[in-house]
């Protein structure tokens, strides 16, 4: 196994049981993502992309198959061990931003550091540095309600980055934003990618997906296409 791999999913299946009925959500998915890649995962609803996202994000375990994240086998870990993996290796960006409403931007960004047991002074210092990275240092003391949608998403991205994760995982990051703000967020992702971040983005929006360098398409729980985005340095994992 190459140490350059950020993600390595091998023959992942996920089956949901509903009474006696078994619903297969993923039926043998192989996906390898190298460090520094910028990948979009696309698919219509019911294609299994949410399930895929949950497994990549260590919120759920595969039924069968193996999953290595940043070189570590995470497919059979218990809840608390998964929480630690999420804390150390993953950064989440949600469609609805999911910031703590009564808490200012700085404290929102510092939250993962708190769970990591880092002291208050160091938390604030690192949260401030990360806010600077997303261009919001001057909004550090603002509450989410005092920020625009695009600014809120930047805070959320800063929160995802503050622990220096191996993979940045974004679930419809522009779903709640207008076109202009979406473009703004996408250029931030571009900059992060250029800085060497590994980004996985789940979206159903073709134009958003084209910002990535590689698009993986899911249908009925299988990968049906895996292409480099035209006009870029082409790359496939096969």
């Amino acid at each position: 196994m190459s140490s350059a791999l950020a993600l390595d999913l091998a023959q992942i299946t996920k089956t949901y049981k509903s009474g006696s009925l078994e619903v297969p959500a993923l039926q043998g998915v192989d996906l390898r993502v190298e460090r520094g890649e910028y990948v979009a995962i696309m698919g219509p609803s019911g294609s299994g992309k949410s399930t895929m996202m949950n497994i990549i994000g260590c919120l759920d375990r595969p039924t069968t198959g193996s999953y290595h994240l940043d070189g570590e086998d995470v497919s059979r870990l218990d809840d608390n061990a998964l929480a630690t993996i999420r804390l150390r290796k993953l950064g989440f960006v949600f469609q609805g931003f999911n910031l703590l409403a009564r808490t200012d931007a700085l404290k929102n960004v510092a939250l993962p550091l708190f769970y990591a047991g880092i002291g208050a002074r160091e938390r604030d210092r690192r949260a401030m540095a990360t806010l600077q990275e997303v261009g919001l240092a001057d909004r550090a003391r603002h509450k989410p309600s005092e920020l625009s949608g695009g600014q809120q998403q930047r805070v959320a991205i800063a929160r995802a980055l503050v622990n220096d994760p191996a993979v940045l995982l974004a679930d419809e990051p522009t779903g709640n934003l207008d076109t202009r703000t979406s473009a703004d967020i996408m250029s931030l992702f571009d900059a992060l990618h250029a800085g060497g971040r590994t980004i996985i983005m789940v979206t159903h929006d073709e134009s958003i997906a084209r910002n990535a360098r590689r698009i993986v398409r899911l249908l009925d729980g299988r990968i049906v296409a895996d292409d480099a985005v035209a006009g870029d340095r082409s790359f496939t994992s096969f």
């Binding site: 994000g57 919120l59 809840d79 608390n80 929480a83 630690t84 999420r86 804390l87 150390r88 993953l90 989440f92 949600f94 609805g96 999911n98 703590l100 939250l111 993962p112 769970y115 990591a116 929160r159 622990n163």
Partner: peptide
């Protein structure tokens, strides 16, 4: 949702 977010960010049960 807030609890879900905290968990996704990496909060353990005990926290």
């Amino acid at each position: 949702r807030e609890i879900g977010t905290r968990k996704a960010i990496g909060a353990r049960r005990g926290q």
